[in-house]
Design a protein around this nucleic acid. Structure first.
Lengths: 205, 205
DNA sequence: TTTTTCCGATACGATACCGTTGCGTTTCGC
DNA sequence: GCGAAACGCAACGGTATCGTATCGGAAAAA
């Protein structure tokens, strides 16, 4: 993408040919995680570089030595702190979908997700590149995984070939998200009901 | 509640006993609509009173003469600019649900909705009263209407008595919302597919 | 008519944040 | 060790915003 800070030698894969003391990789991590943590608490607008520095126990100059501005700091943090995405494999499509719903319910319904999604929605007009980045680096991978799972179900003949898979995922995640937005819990039985409604409503078996 | 500006005589229902020139009701309207318009464009954080004043063609002092601070301005604007909520009545529960989905699709999938919902999500930690206000004054009335429609369908025997009506609404609106968040359109046929999936998945007839 | 209050304009202080810079110190490659 | 660059600290200029205050003029109640 040609981001400025990469030209400064931050790129991991390339050998650092600068002479003096190198950037401390340990500090990169704490900066990234602090940034994401505050993003999940405040959202982009109310996130300040000073707070990131304080939380990370790092000087502000140390941050600006790595990234030219706040936006690049956030974008880089999004890149470097992606958790793993385990592929469910219960043997049946319905079981897989249920497992994914369970994972969302367990790990995805928290302040971070709500704030990150809220930021993505609010930012679309004023900070389109931020919205795009959150979408590409957080939303897309998860949707891609879900799509793979559902495509497998179609191949198995558990779902009709013409099933709009996008809609399946939108219904499951969307329903959970609006409850998260309202601050309401998603019980295990509700999640189960949700998945079954979508699955059988789509003609699954 | 004891809001400051009500003590200043802004309360509509009570007779204004102050002596001099009264507040211009015409200016109230333009201030409220300007506030909501900018809320739908920027979100709460990036909303500035100066911008509201400029858009409304009004002095900043005129705003602060009415509301003690930015938060009260936004809360009051949310109160005073609620559009009507027509009740669908197509004769069948499925038709009603379809009509509601159509209304959301036509009037609800825009920048304002996205930004307002995003603000509600992002604000929940730092501005809980704002999130609560958006919820109570925008979300709740719409959900109440949807619930009434679905309860009628249950009474008619078109939906099982034990149907979790909350979930029905969450699925329909949630699926549309996540598409809105991603900036993707909701076609007429997709909305139809969505509603039918929920309806028949829930055991409707 | 008198008095009270609104209104627009404008300036103001306070605060917060961005991004930059300088300095003395520390760490690392060579 | 030497030199180069990172690091923490701190200060800075610039900008934006909040909320207050002051002013002259206009409007409307009393």
């Amino acid at each position: 993408m040609g981001l400025g800070y990469q030209a400064s030698g931050l790129d991991d894969s390339m050998s650092d040919e600068r002479r003096g003391r190198p950037l401390d990789a340990q500090r990169n991590k704490v900066i990234h995680s602090s940034t994401l943590s505050l993003m999940g608490e405040y959202g982009y607008d109310a996130l300040s570089v000073e707070r990131v520095a304080k939380l990370a126990g790092v000087s502000k100059a140390t941050i600006y030595r790595r990234y030219p501005n706040k936006m690049e700091l956030v974008l880089a943090s999004l890149d470097h702190n992606l958790y793993g995405l385990p592929m469910p494999d219960s043997g049946t499509g319905l079981g897989d979908l249920m497992q994914m719903a369970h994972m969302i319910r367990t790990y995805g319904l928290n302040n971070e997700t709500r704030c990150m999604f809220g930021t993505m929605m609010t930012a679309r007009v004023r900070h389109p590149e931020l919205a795009k980045a959150v979408h590409e680096r957080i939303v897309v991978p998860r949707r891609q995984r879900a799509r793979s799972v559902l495509e497998r179900a179609v191949k198995r003949g558990e779902l009709p070939a013409e099933t709009p898979l996008e809609l399946v995922m939108d219904m499951v995640f969307g329903a959970m998200l609006v409850r998260l937005a309202r601050g309401e819990a998603v019980s295990e039985s509700l999640a189960e009901h949700l998945v079954k409604t979508v699955w059988f409503g789509m003609g699954g078996r």
